[in-house]
């Protein structure tokens, strides 16, 4: 089991940019985007294994908050509006 990236909320993370094929619950529009952990949600079955009939270890899941400016750049509808998504730890890397 990996150690969680951050147990405490409001730490900065970047969503990994990798684009493997298959059943993945990290939306493409968030790849490479930087957000803050709003709260840890606990550990959950890994959809990338469950989808193919395998179990594997559970993975920590976080609610990550992004600004619309970060996600959509200068074209954002209202840059200060925010977006929350649930992202598994193995899709996050810490940002210093």
């Amino acid at each position: 089991m990996e150690t969680p990236v951050h147990k405490a909320p409001f730490h900065k993370v970047r969503v990994k940019t990798m684009m493997p094929p298959g059943h993945i619950r990290t939306p493409a529009y968030l790849r490479g985007k930087v957000g803050v952990i709003e709260r840890p949600l606990g550990e959950f079955g890994n959809p990338e294994l469950l989808a193919y009939g395998h179990q594997g270890p559970k993975k920590p899941l976080y609610r990550v908050r992004f600004t619309m400016a970060e996600v959509w750049g200068p074209g954002a509808e209202t840059p200060t509006d925010t977006l929350d998504a649930e992202i598994f730890e193995h899709w996050l890397e810490p940002v210093e």
Binding site: G22, H23, G45, P47, L50, A51, Y52, G53
Partner: peptide, 9 residues
């Protein structure tokens, strides 16, 4: 018999 992720897949 299957998971919601299996269904989505």
């Amino acid at each position: 018999y299957f998971t919601v992720d299996g269904l989505r897949r």
